[in-house]
Design a protein around this nucleic acid. Structure first.
Length: 913
RNA sequence: GGGCGGUUAGCUCAGUGGUUAGAGCGCCUCGUUCACACCGAGGAGGCCGGAGGUUCAAAUCCUCCAUCGCCCACCA
């Protein structure tokens, strides 16, 4: 690396602002983000979910990118040729809506401008705000291959869109049909089922009497009373339906009623879809404005009346209400019915009403001519839906967390054809040309100049554009070059992992699987990895209108990128929503600072070591052969175990687990214990310097945590590389180093046991000191009793005695045979630290009755546990059925507790004497 | 109406069969010469929503209930 750390000495607190921009620029300039060939591994590819082109970075993006970058960095360090391909989505309806809002604020609208000028304006808007989000994303330190960035409206992806359309059309899988669809009157476009959001609305159920034909309105007499939440649609009623089994209405079936206001005669039909106990049991049928009514109408040959127009106003078919706004019409119709005496009841009624996902207008179902993709059915293997279903049901694609598998399959099992045409101006225009002369439809990848049937040049392109998700559905293959057999497509498709929020499982993930299989015959990715939503501290969805958003860039400014990333991805399980508060970032920042200072300690120790005594020993830091010190063997063993666990967690997408393990290791094992132990030896100097181990563990741990904390690890790495004698040949960046693996041969159970005992001893003494309020600077005398006096334990404790002495301020510390110091017991505190007994003669400091009470409490607890364990172990079923290693473990524990009981008994007896 | 998820320490959450259930934050006590006060040492605090069941063994698996949240769905 050519850039240097900002200063020659590391400041006492990590300052991300000094580091991040410089380090990122260097990574980019070195080209590390591009895939590096490696014949030993298949490529690891993630296609980044393309954000909306004029969007801005929010915490959801930050979470997504943090997760993906960690996976990508980990794989890259493992040696996989790794590609993370970024892109941007034109976001048809969202972007058009944004520009329309701007126009509206100037009192203008797109129709005044005309299509061409409006689209130019959108491009200007994109020119101004497009790319902002990726500039912001770079501050997250993400290692995406920016050179491969794709935009959905780029030439390549656009050609993929047209090619797909043409292919599907030729296969008969895209068709144009008049059908009832969801219409947003504000956006003036059709919407797919998914783009409609249902919200509960407090409305009313109006009971309206339709007189039998021949009766006059208002006459109290026979008739059928229907119930509706949308009285204005009655103007378009073409029938009344009742359940065939409903005795109340059986005599009406086949008769006709008079539609009030419109004075139209409409038939009464019988249909199974009618629920007898809802409302009045009679349904007014409006095939033009309700999906259910549409189907009933189809079954009974009822005509379709369109009384609400594309603009949300009533049409000429609405008689005297023509031209009136739909909700105004509702009020007036209700009034008129009241006047006519036909309004029998109005009851409060809460029901769910579809709203436009984008602009929140009430969606109007209406009949119109649209393009659809025929998806078939999940149980027909040769259909789009069938293949998409089989790919997941058959395990070719794995969904993580697993519970979303069923969600996905259920959705496909109920899927209907996909309405893909949008009456918008911003997007991929439908590649269909209509011939004025012969009415033929020319479908073409290239712009058509003439009708392919009659050659006429009097052709007009379909004015509509395609659903944004149509192009996003092609994303994994269209970004890699499809429909060309490009190198990237051959190398990188199918991709490995698709990581995104569970909220777009249907919108995007399902569509990619459908379209990927359709176009390439292969799944687009092997694993779908879903994350949850970022919520605010009280669990509410973050949104600008709620005003509860947090700006990721502000958090980066205050705490650093690494802290933000760590806080978003730790302490949460995959797929779960995350309640996010600033205190999480603060905690992560503190952790980063802890790493920084531990590193500073190592580097300072390096600098302080005398040249002569350390040059030679230091050279062994990389492979650490034949470690003589127990502490060194302990920390290396612990580290390797953790690294093994981290790799396993990563492989199963448990990023939070992986990070937690590293956090605990670094903070507890490395900083709180190892560094503190090692200070003693460093102060003493001497031949058996801990420096090689210290450097080894730091270096390896930095690599292990680099995928999560990319900036700080790089900065420390550079410091290390610069200041560590003989380290010049290390790779020039931590991000191109190999990821550490556990080396099982370095697991050292003995060192872990013995250091564990040292730690327990130190804690016990510290605890006593704190309880008794013994000042820190007052040293205590201590006797450590060991039963098997001549054994390994004795030498171990004696070798570690200076550690114990330093860490809990005891001196002198004498190791004696078990029971030999019993006569001192009376004078102080006795700690049972199996298999040791530690005696602290504290005559006068400790109240002996309190001490014996403390011991009795300990004994009580011991007996409680013993009781439980004895029952367990003496149960013959336990030995017969439990796994042998569990039996062994529990028996060991039992023996230890028995041992402990005996010691406590002895001590209590001595105290009583 | 169907489905899914949550319910674990004061708060936010980890923890899918096996020691005495963990973390961060907060709280209490003590401590700043020697990496870090963005710190250290010690501590308090939980019958893991309830009830049954399976099992040698349940926070963990099953059933039911309660409660909160989300998704899907054409009862107007």
């Amino acid at each position: 690396m050519t850039s240097n750390p900002s200063s020659t000495t590391m400041p006492s607190a990590y300052n991300p602002a000094d580091v991040e921009q410089r380090v990122y620029a260097d990574w980019v300039s070195k080209g590390y983000f591009a895939p590096t060939p490696n014949p030993d591994h298949d490529p690891f590819v993630i296609i980044m979910p393309p954000p909306n082109v004029t969007g801005e970075l929010h915490l959801g993006h930050a979470l997504e990118k943090a997760v993906e970058d960690s996976l990508v960095r980990w794989r890259r360090m493992l040696g996989f040729p790794t590609l993370w391909l970024p892109g941007t989505d034109h976001a048809g309806i969202a972007t058009q809506w944004a520009v329309e809002q701007q126009l509206a604020s100037q009192g203008r609208n797109r129709h005044e401008l005309g299509r061409e000028r409006f689209v130019e304006l959108v491009w200007e808007h994109v020119g101004k705000f497009g790319g902002v989000i990726h500039e912001q994303s770079r501050r997250l330190g993400i290692s995406a291959d920016w050179d491969r960035h794709k935009f959905t409206l780029d030439e390549g992806p656009s050609r993929a869109v047209r090619t797909t359309f043409a292919n599907l059309y030729k296969k008969g899988l895209i068709y144009r049909h008049e059908r009832i669809i969801n219409w947003c009157p504000r956006c003036a476009t059709a919407l797919s089922d998914l783009e409609v959001e249902y919200q509960d609305v407090q409305g009313a159920l109006y009971h309206i009497r339709y007189p039998l034909e021949g009766e006059s309105e208002g006459e109290s007499g026979r008739g059928i009373t229907v119930a509706t939440t949308r009285p204005e649609t009655m103007l378009g009623d073409t029938g009344v339906a009742v359940n065939p089994d409903d005795p109340r209405y059986s005599q009406f079936v086949g008769l006709r009623v008079l539609l009030p206001i419109m004075d139209r005669s409409i038939p009464v039909v019988a249909d199974e879809a009618i629920t007898q106990d809802f409302g009045t049991g009679a349904l007014k049928v409006t095939p033009g404005h309700d999906p259910v009514d549409f189907e009933i109408g189809q079954r009974h040959g009822l005509p379709i009346e369109t009384v609400i127009g594309l603009d949300g106003n009533m049409t000429a078919a609405a008689g005297k209400y023509a031209g009136k706004e739909r909700f105004q019409t509702r009020r007036e119709v209700v009034d008129e019915l009241g006047t006519l005496g036909l309004l029998e009841n109005i009851e409060d009624y809460s029901h769910s009403v579809g709203h436009c996902q984008r602009c929140n207008s009430v969606v109007e179902p209406l009949v119109s001519l649209q393009w659809f993709v025929s998806l078939g059915s999940h149980d027909q293997p040769d259909t789009i839906a069938g293949r998409a279903h089989a790919a997941v049901a058959g395990g070719e694609i794995t969904v993580v967390p697993e519970r979303f598998t069923r969600v996905y399959l259920n959705w496909l099992e109920n899927i209907r054809d996909w309405c893909i045409s949008r009456q918008l101006w911003w997007g991929h225009r439908i590649p269909v040309w209509y011939c004025d002369d012969c009415a033929h439809l020319t479908v073409s990848v290239e712009d058509a100049a003439a009708c392919e049937s009659c050659g006429s040049v009097e052709i007009r392109q379909d004015p509509d554009v395609l659903d944004t998700w149509f192009s996003s559905g092609l994303w994994p293959h269209s970004t890699l070059g499809w429909p060309d057999e490009s190198d990237d497509f051959k190398r990188f498709y199918p991709t490995a992992v698709l990581e995104t929020g569970y909220d777009i499982l249907f919108f995007w993930v399902a569509r990619m699987i459908m379209m990927g299989l359709e176009n390439t015959g292969q799944v687009p990715f092997r694993t779908v990895f879903l994350h949850g939503l970022v919520r605010d501290g009280s669990g509410a969805k973050m949104s600008k209108t709620r005003g509860n958003t947090m700006d990721p860039l502000g958090l980066i400014d205050r705490y650093g990128t690494d802290a933000l990333r760590f806080s978003l991805t730790t302490g949460t399980a995959p797929g779960n929503d995350l309640r996010f508060t600033e205190s999480r970032v603060e905690a992560a920042r503190n952790f980063a600072n802890k790493i920084w200072n531990a590193s500073r300690f190592v580097l300072t120790s390096l600098a302080n070591a005398t040249e002569a005594s350390n040059q030679s020993t230091l050279s062994g830091w990389r492979d650490l052969r034949d470690l003589s010190h127990r502490e060194d063997r302990w920390i290396v063993s612990r580290m390797d175990r953790v690294i093994g666990e981290v790799n396993r967690s990563m492989a199963s997408f448990e990023l939070g687990e992986a990070q937690q393990k590293l956090y605990d290791f670094i903070w507890n094992d490395f900083c709180d214990w190892y560094i503190e132990m090692v200070k003693i030896r460093l102060r003493q100097g001497g031949a058996d310097s801990p420096l090689p181990t210290l450097v080894h563990v730091l270096e390896r741990t930095l690599r292990a945590i680099h995928p999560f904390l990319p900036f700080i690890t790089e900065e420390i790495w550079q410091n290390l590389r610069e200041r560590l004698p003989g380290a010049e040949d290390l790779p020039e960046s931590i991000m191109i180093c190999p990821y550490p693996q556990d080396e099982g041969h370095r697991f050292d159970a003995e060192a872990e046991d013995q250091i564990g005992l040292v730690m327990r001893t130190v804690r016990a003494v510290r605890n006593t000191r704190a309880q008794l309020g013994i000042p820190v600077n007052q040293t205590l005398e201590a006797l450590v009793e060991i039963d098997d006096f001549q054994g390994d334990l004795q030498s171990a404790i004696e070798e570690e005695s200076q550690v114990v002495r330093a860490l809990c301020r005891v001196d002198p510390l004498r190791v004696v045979p078990g029971g030999s110091s019993a006569s001192d017991a009376r004078k102080g505190v006795t700690l049972v630290v199996n298999p040791l007994v530690v005696r602290l003669p504290l005559e006068g400091v400790v109240d002996l009755s309190e001490e014996s009470q403390r011991l009795r409490n300990e004994m009580d607890e011991c007996l409680r546990n013993l009781n439980r364990l004895e029952t367990l172990v003496s149960n013959p079923n336990f030995k017969a059925k439990a796994r042998p290693e569990v039996v062994q473990k529990e028996e060991g524990r039992l023996a230890e507790l028995q041992d402990r009981r005996q010691r406590l008994e002895e001590i209590l007896a001595q105290l009583a004497a």
